[in-house]
Computed example of a mutant assay.
Amino acid sequence: MNGLYALKPWYADRLSGLRRALAARQVSPDTLTAAGVVCAAGAAAALAWLPAPPAALLVAVLLAGRLAFANLDGALARDTGRTTRRGALLNELGDRAADLLVIAGFLPLAPLWLVAAAAFATTLPSWVSLAGAAAGAPRRNGGPVGKTERCLLAVVAAASGWAVPVLAVVAAGSAVTAVVRALWVWRALGQPETAVAAVARERVVATKRAMATERDVASEKPVVRAAEPASSAPRRRPSPSPSPSPSSSPTLGSLPCDHDRSLPLDPGEVSGGITHTRPQSPADRGTRLRGAR
């Protein structure tokens, strides 16, 4: 019996584009929690001071914003990795403050005792859910008259002016929701110990992740990575070059010569397979020319 809470996945999907835009602009989830409280205060002021039919539109818009911000703050924290213990506490306090502010809007329209009874009754379902979660059961939401239904009933009161009947329905429905959640939590805690222990382990892991994220954000120390070597292959020593054999020795004529290469070379005698060459002087050239004549 989740009531209108069953529409939460559909509603969260409609808000996915806005959530991505908020994440791109690095908006803090705590800012969204505070914005939800402000919307609830505005709806309460409109309910208390504006006449019945014209107040309905403004109350509906502000309470829709209150529900949107209540959905966005937790989802944004999970998407951006900014879930912290302080953020979880602020989220719970913001929800309770928003609920009480909406009920406070009935103060000029209903008896004080009924407003006080409704304010007390609206906090009971959350107390039961938090107590069950502390004992190891999963968090229970929804209701017959949960947060979404209470917002809808406030819009009905703003449109019709039936503040007293609507407030009585809110008080009675919230009490019934608390009883339904308490029975569900009681059955969950009566399951085998292994199932409860699994839920408790999941909660411990989530808490440790939140603590690690909180420490990282608090330290804000840059992480310097050591430079990796260009190549992980082991270095090899160069193998010694083999000594040249006599048969493979190059000739002196093939070796580079420091003499002026513009002078013609005269082949000399060949001895031992090595050709001796020397530069030809001008006197030698003249001798050769006379011998050729």
Rank of each mutant, 00 (worst) to 15 (best):
A6D: 14
Y11M: 13
Y11W: 15
D13L: 13
S16G: 12
R20F: 09
A21V: 11
L22K: 00
Q26E: 13
S28G: 10
P29K: 01
T33C: 08
A34E: 13
A34C: 02
A35Y: 00
A40K: 01
G42R: 15
A43L: 07
A44G: 08
A45C: 10
A46P: 00
A48K: 05
L50G: 04
P53E: 11
A55V: 03
V59N: 06
V61G: 15
L62Y: 07
L63W: 00
A64N: 05
A70D: 02
A70I: 02
L76V: 02
G81L: 06
R86N: 08
N91K: 01
N91F: 01
E92Y: 05
G94N: 03
D95L: 07
I103P: 00
P108A: 05
W113Y: 09
L114Y: 00
V115Y: 04
A116T: 12
A117E: 09
A118C: 04
P125C: 07
W127T: 12
G136L: 07
P138G: 08
R140Q: 13
R140K: 11
P144A: 12
P144M: 06
P144C: 08
V145P: 01
T148L: 12
R150V: 15
A154P: 04
A157I: 03
V166P: 02
L167G: 04
G173W: 01
G173L: 01
S174Q: 00
V179S: 08
R181C: 04
A182I: 03
W184M: 09
W186A: 14
L189A: 08
Q191D: 09
P192W: 00
A198M: 07
V199A: 13
R203Q: 14
V205Y: 02
A206N: 09
R209T: 10
A210V: 02
E214Y: 01
E214G: 13
D216H: 11
V217G: 11
S219M: 14
E220W: 06
K221L: 14
A227V: 13
S231A: 12
R237H: 08
R237A: 12
S239F: 09
P242K: 13
P242S: 10
S243H: 12
P244H: 05
S247N: 08
P250F: 06
P250M: 10
T251V: 02
G253H: 12
L255Y: 04
H259V: 11
S262K: 10
L265A: 15
P267H: 14
P267A: 15
V270Y: 10
G273A: 13
I274P: 00
T275M: 10
T277L: 14
Q280H: 06
P282W: 03
D284P: 05
R285Q: 15
L289P: 03
